[in-house]
Design a protein around this nucleic acid. Structure first.
Length: 415
RNA sequence: GUGGGUGUAGCUCAAUGGUAGAGCACCGGCCUGUGGCGCCGGUGGUUGCGGGUUCAAUUCCCGUCAUCCACCCCA
């Protein structure tokens, strides 16, 4: 047997309905907020992510599915969507083409990681991006959209966390203060933290080692080191969030893993996901468009993990099945008549099925039940002789005969 | 990349160094034209794969693959 490769999954009937529900909610909300869908390729030039996501990130250093194609080009399966969106924005001059560059995308991403709960090698994201708008209200709109998705999906116990990590002007000052405060305590921290201190000091805030916590708790906060423009921007974001009563919580420990984030960062944390508790995460990335060869346009966005949203869906999530009809045919003549009736129902836009094998009525009824048919049409010798079809409401068990030429209307009423 | 747990029927799980089981699901019957509840019967497994120890391995050992959990990191 040839099995699906590690970290990838088939999404089968029974599970796929949840996915459709999540995707439907995402699209409806994005359209409602004025975001336009964009579909970018799954493969890109490797350098797009090296430059965009960041040469120093783990994603680029060890998690990319990269290869050389037959022409000798370095290609990679996208590990995240933002650089692709930025590329498309620049390449097609979307800032000019669209009235507002508010975009969203839905699709698979690939990272070569060790799979665990909520983390896979092929996973799927909803990606939302806004280009060319710097106002704090835009940050708030993006966060509002993200939170609305969580509410719409009825994901309970989720938490909205925000922070500001400053900009190239003020972050170095903060980082210096951070290392200074760490001072002689650095050797007391875990090995990972000591490594982080040199590679990416902000990530020390991510440490989960209990022994390190007292030291980390005493470290300075980025929001206390913001320059004037960043502080004003951040206050503006919080003001807009408060005005619409979003239940945000500030966490100075919210530092995001990608190099390009500036100013606002945010995440929504779930309770049911084990260690991978981020349902979605994002932030502002002013400067990225320029770095990838475009004009100096601002940018902000987030990515939501569809696997994680599906995992976090409440059991009670009412995912409406398509109401369907089932035709039970008796005898050769019955099956011939059912075949025509089936076609007629479908042409009228109704979901209908029948049993093609010559099986007993009982077996066919059982099949109808298993398919959760809302109404069963019975076509046998008796019905044919009278020019009728028997309709059975599968919920109530009530049954009645209906003239053949009024069947479609009668079924439509019951569905 | 690191550490640990688990691989037996479609699913959830039993069992013993000596012929592999249950529940659910599926198919059929009880009910010759009526689903759900009930009863009866049936299909379905080289016990993940490979090797080793043994008279004999699903069981013990090693490897491998997969999966789960955690670290790293991230959605």
């Amino acid at each position: 047997m040839i099995a699906a490769i590690r970290g990838t999954h088939d999404i089968l009937p029974g599970e796929v309905e949840k996915w459709q529900h999540v995707e439907r909610c995402a699209r409806v909300l994005c359209e409602r907020y004025g975001y336009a869908e964009v579909r970018t390729p799954v493969i890109e030039r490797e350098e797009l992510f090296a430059k965009g996501t960041g040469e120093t990130t783990d994603i680029v250093q060890k998690e990319m599915y990269a290869f050389t194609d037959k022409s000798g080009d370095r290609i990679t399966l996208r590990p995240e969507a933002t650089p692709s969106m930025v590329r498309a924005y620049i390449e097609h001059n979307l800032g000019q083409v669209l009235p507002a560059a508010k975009l969203y995308a839905l699709g698979p991403m690939f990272r070569y990681e060790r799979p665990q709960k909520g983390r896979y090698r092929q996973f799927h994201q909803l990606d939302v991006e806004v280009f060319g708008m710097e106002d704090p209200a835009v940050d708030a709109e993006v966060i509002d959209l993200a939170w609305s998705l969580i509410s719409t999906l009825e994901i309970a116990q989720a938490e909205l966390v925000i922070n500001s990590v400053g900009c190239p002007t003020c972050r170095p000052v903060f980082q210096e203060a951070l290392l200074a405060a760490l001072g002689s305590d650095l050797p007391k921290l875990c090995g990972d933290c000591q490594r982080r201190a040199t590679t990416n000091p902000l990530r020390i805030y991510d440490c989960k080692v209990p022994a390190d916590q007292p030291i980390i708790d005493a470290l300075p906060h980025s929001v206390d080191y913001l320059c004037e423009p960043c502080a004003t921007h951040y206050a503006g974001v919080k003001g807009h969030l408060d005005a619409i009563s979003l239940p945000w919580r500030e966490s100075h420990r919210l530092v995001r893993g990608l190099d390009y984030y500036v100013r606002t960062t945010f995440e929504v944390l779930g309770q049911t996901l084990g260690a991978q508790n981020a349902l979605l995460g994002g932030g502002r990335y002013d400067g990225l468009v320029k770095r990838l060869g475009g004009a100096d346009h601002a940018g902000i966005g987030f990515a939501a993990g569809l696997e994680r949203l599906v995992l976090a869906l409440p059991d009670s999530a009412a995912i409406a099945a398509t109401p369907r009809a089932f035709i039970v045919a008796i005898g050769e003549d019955g099956r011939a008549a059912a075949w025509l009736l089936l076609r007629e129902l479908r042409q009228s836009g109704l979901a209908a099925q029948m049993e093609f094998e010559a099986r007993g009525v009982r077996a066919q009824m059982k099949r109808a039940d298993r398919l959760a048919a809302r109404v069963t049409l019975i076509v046998g010798g008796d019905e044919l002789a009278r020019g009728e079809v028997t309709l059975r409401d599968m919920t109530t068990g009530e049954q009645r005969a209906v003239a053949r030429d009024t069947v479609v209307a009668a079924v439509r009423e019951l569905l």
